[in-house]
Simulated scan of single mutants.
Amino acid sequence: MPAALLALFVGALIGALLTIVVVAAMRARQRAEAEAHPRLPEAVTAMLDVLDDAAIVTDPSGIVVATSPSSTWVGAVAGERLEQEELRDLMKEARHAGMSEAQTMRIRAGRISREPRLVVARSAQIGQGFILVSVRDISEQERLQQMRQDFIQNTSHELKTPVGAIALLAEALEMAADDPEQVRRFSERMSAEADRLGQLTGRIMNLSRLQAADELIDVGDVAVDEVVHAAVEAQQVTAAGANVELVVGGDRGLFVHGDGRVLIEAVSNLVSNAIAYSPAGSHVGVGVRGVDNAVEIAVTDQGIGIAEDDQKRVFERFFRADQARSRRTGGTGLGLSIVKHAIQRHGGEVRLWSREGHGSTFTIRLPLADPPAAPEKPKRRKKRAQKAPATGKEDIA
């Protein structure tokens, strides 16, 4: 009996040991399979779906296994390696260091991108060998910061000229106090510089307002006829002084949606530029037409034209294609920049055609709007005829 119990105990012990060995082997196999073919946690996938920045997850071999919806611009494709060597190096550093790594770098976005983008990339290890890299594109912030710096520098430079001229003229005026002719001449020049300064500061404020505002304020249905008429009327005196004829034609009765005051200023700037660069005896044409659900307002001159190299820069702030003529006419170099931003605020664009010696045509293109509904006329009530009580005659009103 004791021998049977002993055999039973030994058999149970051997069975338990075999079970433990089998379970351990199965678990080791599962761990090996998990290490060879790791699975991305579902929580990570859910996190990727709500990220605003581009986010990419790669497996231990560097193959992309998941991306966020906003990462398409990076060019990451599931099942392939990341193209950007800079990002791959950052992910290697995170894997070796075992902690988050962040760098500011320039990368090319996708296969067709030519210009590198400035990004802030951060990489960290998650799960079993997976590496997450998030990429935030700060190229636009860099561009805006550069624009602000350029704007401040250009504005300071442009303001120094009239301010310095006024200071010198004031000093000359004081020294020539006993000479009436000199006083008159210096006073006229000082007045001209003051006007130039006022015009420059006014246009700087207009441009800053257009760039800073997210939306237009006074928006409604605007008659293109009224915009063109007001813009041309504002430049009639200037045109007459330059012996330039203003000619208006084209389609009538068209409407756009926007701020009438801003649109008048934009068209007026184009007409003013056309007059300034037109020879005496020529004419400036303002034409309107409706085409493809859009309104086009074209301002054409017979002036000197714009060189091909300068055509790409004419909408830059403070850029002047003809420096000498701008000094004579008091140009600020801001008119076309104001036009560009004003039309972009209305969802439109400005196009340029020009040939040296043959003149230029600036065309504003805006979305066409339906004409506003005409107000209903009040219905007149007919008065019933009433008999006069005294005479018996009918009094018809």
Rank of each mutant, 00 (worst) to 15 (best):
A192L: 09
E188Y: 04
L216I: 01
E142R: 11
Q146I: 09
S187C: 08
F151M: 11
E158L: 14
F151N: 03
I152F: 12
L207P: 01
A192P: 07
R189S: 05
S191D: 02
A165M: 10
T201S: 07
E158Y: 10
L197M: 13
I217P: 05
R203M: 11
E142V: 12
R184E: 07
E181R: 07
G198H: 06
T201E: 09
S191E: 06
D178F: 14
E140W: 13
Q211P: 04
S208T: 14
L159Y: 05
A165V: 10
S187F: 07
L197G: 05
D214H: 10
A176M: 02
D218R: 14
R148E: 12
G164A: 08
M205P: 06
A172P: 02
Q199N: 14
E188S: 04
D178K: 12
L169A: 01
L173T: 02
D218P: 08
L200D: 01
V163H: 14
S208A: 15
E193R: 02
G202I: 08
T155P: 04
E171G: 13
A167H: 12
T155V: 07
Q182W: 09
L197K: 02
F186K: 00
I166E: 02
Q211N: 06
D214W: 10
L216D: 00
L173N: 03
A170V: 12
T155H: 04
G164T: 04
L207D: 01
D179T: 02
Q199F: 12
